[in-house]
Amino acid sequence: MSKRRAFWLGAGAMVAAMAVSGAAFAADKKQPKKKDYRAAALEVMKASFQARGQATLDRLNQDEAQAACSRSAAGEPLASDLKKKMEEAQSATVKYPADSKYLGSWKSGERIAQTGRGLQFSDDPSEPAGGNCYACHQLSQQEVAYGTIGPSLYRYGKLRGNSEPMLKYTWAKLWNAQAFNACSDMPRFGHKGILTEEQLKDVMALLFDPESPVNQ
């Protein structure tokens, strides 16, 4: 290759390189910054909602799990190590009954499972909240109006027995379902103070008591 030819090739390459970088620069300038729609949505929500009764605006302030689960639901799946970390953090929130007694009255438990009221802006805060278990789960066979968002719990105790580890596991699941499954659809009944310890014992009895309609 002659020197002159090499010169022109080199110059041509430089011009081409400059043109490419120039084009890239222009594209950078043209391309608007990617919008943060999550932040925009939160801003819109804060301006669009108002406190009413017990449903105050701080309910829009997400905890870490809610924020991560929103991102995941909107299309950014949780990395497996984050999922594990979240489950560990949720697991650490579980409080077991001080007297180590897990089972209350299944009759009260059935009422709690049937009741859907509680914590809505339309609810009287002096009334106890329900668990609304039937909204998502089959429990007793007599109640045919059950939902299917969660699995059937019919014969829960009869199928599993009521060993200490089974009682403990179920208590933890009711207290904070995300301890076992990050971003579970199930509310964290104990952790979020939806149900009291006594109410949780009654729901436990509905699941485990041999006399409970769930185990017939």
């Binding site: 949505a41 929500m45 929103s70 509310p187 964290r188 979020k192 103070g193």
Partner: peptide
């Protein structure tokens, strides 16, 4: 639509 919040998540 995908925003989790409130006591029930």
């Amino acid at each position: 639509f995908f925003f989790h919040g409130g006591p029930h998540d």
